[in-house]
């Protein structure tokens, strides 16, 4: 492979990204060990500046900001994975069915996807979250509602282009059922691009979900969620440590996933991959 020699900078970026992803996952898993205090413990004076005692200061209820940021990883990371998995599965199934059967099935499903695309993401997510009630669980549902159509479009296109290939026709002639054809013959064509999309989508999911929490439509206080920490920190705008660190956590998580996803895309996209190989 000449990929390495052609682009020595690409792999480091992916490595840095992957390292940060692993780091944050570890932080989430080891939160009880790493955090000096509990996320809800009111252990000190209110609104203390960052110091050796409280590295990120304390908030308006005297809670340790560092501990809350650490426990925040336990909220955002699992939810982001869950969100993306749900959207990818729902979207892929819908897209595969639409692409495989075509006709009115395709028409109906894709018009549905168009409808979701007609709204700017957060507006629809806001409407859904507001309609279902301001709760973290509903915000998760809202983000799934907004995210599945991208997968549906991608998978539909891939399935349609693979559907007419000869090995699919051969399989059908041998008596393979629709479902078997989709799972056995078509899935390998779809898996790679969907994987790249999920990697790039984790970042978006974190952003959208924390945005909803920021608007008060997701996680509710006193839960240690980064978006809602930022918004409650806004009430004490001049005390920067209340909102700087939770936001910085969101940024590093999203950036890490995007580093990985972007590199994966380059590697798996046939056009760029060909160009990379020279």
């Amino acid at each position: 492979m000449t990929t390495g020699s052609r682009s020595p900078w690409r792999q480091p970026l992916a490595l840095i990204g992957a390292a940060f992803v692993v780091l944050w996952v570890l932080v989430a898993v080891l939160a009880p060990v790493l955090a000096p205090y509990g996320p809800l413990d009111q252990i000190a004076d209110k609104l203390l500046e960052p110091s050796a005692q409280h590295l990120f200061g304390t908030d308006q209820l005297g809670r340790d900001v560092l501990s809350r940021v650490i426990y925040g990883a336990q909220v955002s990371l699992p939810l982001a994975f869950l969100l993306v998995a749900l959207s990818a599965v729902i979207g892929s199934v819908v897209g595969a069915v639409a692409g495989f059967f075509g006709g009115w099935v395709d028409g109906t499903l894709m018009r549905l996807a168009d409808l979701v695309f007609a709204f700017p993401g957060i507006i629809l997510a806001m409407a859904v979250a507001a309609a279902l009630g301001p709760e973290l669980r509903n915000a998760v549902l809202a983000v799934v509602v907004v995210s599945w159509p991208s997968y549906a479009r991608l998978v539909r296109g891939l399935v349609m282009s693979a559907r007419n290939s000869e090995y699919v026709a051969a399989g059908r002639l041998l008596g393979s059922s629709s479902i078997r054809t989709m799972v056995v013959d078509l899935r390998p064509n779809v898996a790679g691009p969907v994987l790249v999309m999920t990697a790039l989508d984790v970042g978006n999911a974190v952003l959208l979900l924390s945005g909803l929490s920021f608007l008060g439509l997701g996680a509710q206080p006193p839960m240690a969620e980064w978006g809602s920490m930022v918004v409650s920190g806004m009430d004490y705008f001049d005390l920067w440590w209340l909102w700087l660190y939770p936001g910085l956590s969101i940024l590093t998580v999203v950036l890490a996933f995007n580093f990985v996803g972007d590199t994966l895309r380059d590697a798996l996209d046939p056009r760029t991959a060909r160009a990379l190989r020279g």
């Binding site: 052609r6 682009s7 900078w9 970026l13 970042g203 952003l207 924390s210 945005g211 920021f214 978006g227 930022v230 918004v231 806004m234 705008f237 920067w240 909102w243 700087l244 939770p246 936001g247 910085l248 969101i250 940024l251 999203v254 950036l255 995007n258 580093f259 972007d262």
Partner: peptide
Amino acid sequence: DRWPDQVLRVVSLGGVSMPTFWVALVAFY
């Protein structure tokens, strides 16, 4: 693939990775 490309790649990924509400707070502050 030369250095301006590598730097700009990080810049653009940084741009799409920033939580908008947080950038707003930092810029405002």
